[in-house]
Amino acid sequence: MEPTGQNLPQGNQTTLIGFILLGFSDVPDLQGFLFGVFLIIYVIILMGNSLIIIIINVDPSLRNPMYYFLGNFSSLEICYVSVIVPRMLIDLCTQNRNISFLACATQMYFFLVLGATECFILTVMAYDRYIAICNPLLYPLIMNSRMCIQLAAGCWVTGIPVHIGFTYQIFSLPFCGSHQLNHFFCDVPPVLQLACGDTFMAEMLIYVVAVLVVTIPFMLIFGSYVKIISTIMKLPSVTGRAKAFSTCSSHLMVVALFFGSGIISYLRPKSSHSTGMDKFLSLFYTIVTPVFNPMIYCLRNKDVMVALKKFLSKWIVL
């Protein structure tokens, strides 16, 4: 009889066939409820971001750099949650929590690449607002269509080579002892906890990548908004100040939600890690933030609301 995933021999774990994602197995009575909640959230994320993409493409008034990057951001959010949520729903529904070694590495890789892309796109969106508010006369020259395409392409591809090496480094480690992954997806900290031997290099790489991908973009965004707020406060018109703040407030809220949870999760000391807190923070930046993003950008942006009403009125009439 084949040994099950629960009682594999403790010897050579470098040839693991996979891990067991424990997920939310510690609350067995809530499996059906959690499945329903996460399914509804996933559908909302898909519909909300798809609607934003459609509106931006069909409404001529939204064909400018700010909404071009917002369209990219919404496309990214769909990809980002689709790396994690469908697998989590399958686990909750079937209770088959086994994930192959290759599938785990693939999920981690795409999660890291898309997470890095999100950091970069949020930075580019801040740069776009900085040029629009601080250098309005040069805005059409600087943020031309070619520059927008180059910036967006750079955001999508920059993280690819970095995270190939990073993921390879993590999964090159020997894994011994338990192969039960106490998480709902293959995130870096819980996978690293199962590794044996010297993990110092991998842990240092986490901090290096986190600084390059999270901290530096966050500081660039922070610096941009210091300049933006300083410029806005100098505007003579109260109406002008209010309009300028309104175009930035939604982006600032998304940045605070995403970067706040990401920095706390990856840059806090290893000694302060706990399974419950790790799962909570992961839920926050993988599911909660993406579900709020379409609402934030729609409800707090007058141009998007006007375009949405026009779009819905056409469909209602049809």
Score class of each variant (00 low, 15 high):
G5V: 14
N7S: 10
N7F: 15
P9Y: 09
P9G: 11
L16V: 01
F19Y: 10
L22S: 13
S25P: 03
D29G: 05
L30P: 06
Q31Y: 07
Q31M: 11
F33W: 15
L34A: 09
F38Y: 13
L39H: 07
V43A: 06
L46H: 00
L51E: 08
S61I: 02
L62P: 04
R63L: 02
Y67I: 06
C79P: 01
V83W: 07
I84C: 08
P86Y: 03
L92R: 14
F101M: 14
A103S: 11
A103W: 09
M108F: 08
V113H: 05
C119D: 04
C119L: 05
I121N: 06
M125W: 04
I133S: 09
P136V: 02
M143G: 04
S145W: 13
M147F: 09
C148M: 09
I149S: 05
G159K: 06
S178M: 01
H183Y: 13
F184Y: 09
F185V: 01
D187S: 10
P189T: 01
L194F: 03
L194T: 05
A195Q: 10
C196P: 07
T199E: 07
F200K: 13
E203N: 14
L205E: 10
V208N: 00
P217H: 00
P217N: 00
M219H: 04
I221H: 03
S224L: 00
K227N: 12
S230I: 04
I232C: 12
I232P: 12
A244C: 08
V255M: 03
A256Q: 03
F258D: 02
F259Y: 15
G260L: 05
S261V: 09
I263A: 07
S265C: 10
L267D: 12
S271K: 12
K279S: 10
K279R: 09
L281R: 03
Y285T: 04
T286K: 11
Y297D: 05
L299A: 11
M305S: 15
M305Q: 14
S313Y: 08
K314L: 12
L318T: 13
L318C: 13
